[in-house]
Amino acid sequence: MDSVQLVFLALIQGLTEFLPISSSGHLILPSEVLGWQDQGLAFDVAVHVGSLLAVLGYFRHEVIALANAWVASLGGKSSAESRLAWFVVLATIPAGLAGVIFHDFIETNLRSVLVIAITTIVFGVLLGWADSTGKRTTSLQQMSLRQALIVGCCQALALIPGTSRSGITMTAALALGLERQAAARFSFLLSIPLIASSGGYKAVGLIGASAIVWEELLLGIAVAAVSAALCIHLFLAWIDRIGMWPFVIYRLVLGAVLLLLLY
């Protein structure tokens, strides 16, 4: 992979991981549409490491507070932070189980441009519906366990390319009445254990690999981390003003273009 492709793909990962437009779908498209060679497992792990570093860095104070509160809760000390920490843990379980059960089937049967086009459109429409009809009255502190678990179950659908992990979790949270900021922040916090576990699982496949070009991987990590951090900052700064409709329109246009390319 040449340096231009490497930087481009790392930018795609960083910019789309936390936007409701599907990072996995965008990473598949260059090889399917432009004829680029697959970026490979090592590079996939690297850009996910970059995204993980970005979200951990941006939410470092919240993550430390949640981790400390979660540990304290094991000793019987409950707080708003420990409650949210447990919500993150419990809401991650459905996607983790779905990944273990359906990973091979999805990799074999659903990584295609047609699937990406359909899911891009369908879940884009659902995002617009949730943003338009959701009450947006529930803060992150007011979230219930039921709401957290429903969002977690919906997150499992993101295994299907083109769905968007951030998109489906924000869609579910908005439909359940959460504020836009609360929906986005819970989605970002949910990404931490999922990206970490997914990256770790993929990294196991690199054990014993001999053809790893570390300079390329480090560049991919850096580009993905910087672009993802910038994306998180701008998204949270603008989301209350612009809402979800710019992303809905983007998804509909992208899905239509992909269908035109196929047919």
Rank of each mutant, 00 (worst) to 15 (best):
M1F: 05
Q5E: 11
L6G: 01
V7D: 06
V7F: 10
Q13H: 07
G14W: 11
T16R: 10
P20I: 05
S22W: 13
L29C: 03
S31G: 15
E32D: 05
L34I: 00
Q37K: 14
G40W: 12
L41K: 11
L41E: 02
A46R: 04
V47S: 01
V49H: 04
G50W: 06
S51V: 09
L52P: 09
L56A: 07
F59Y: 02
R60A: 12
H61I: 09
H61L: 07
I64L: 13
I64W: 13
A65I: 01
V71H: 02
V71S: 03
S78K: 15
S82K: 06
W86Y: 03
F87T: 09
F87Q: 14
F87L: 10
A91D: 10
L97Y: 11
I101T: 12
F102C: 03
N109T: 13
V113Q: 02
L114T: 14
I116G: 04
T119C: 14
V122G: 05
L126Q: 09
T133V: 14
R136T: 07
R136K: 15
T137K: 14
S139M: 04
S144T: 15
V151M: 06
A156N: 12
P161Q: 11
S164C: 03
R165S: 04
R165W: 12
G167L: 10
A172Y: 12
A172E: 02
L174T: 10
E179C: 08
A182E: 07
A183R: 08
S187I: 03
L194E: 00
A196W: 04
S197N: 00
S197C: 05
Y201Q: 06
Y201M: 12
G205E: 03
L206H: 09
I207S: 09
G208E: 06
I212S: 03
V213R: 11
E216G: 12
G220S: 13
I221K: 02
A224D: 02
V226W: 01
S227L: 09
A228F: 11
A229K: 11
L230G: 15
I232W: 02
I232K: 01
H233F: 12
A237K: 15
R241Y: 08
R241W: 05
R241F: 04
I242R: 01
M244D: 03
P246T: 06
P246L: 04
P246V: 03
V248K: 10
I249G: 00
V253Q: 04
L254D: 04
L259Q: 04
L260G: 00
L262W: 03
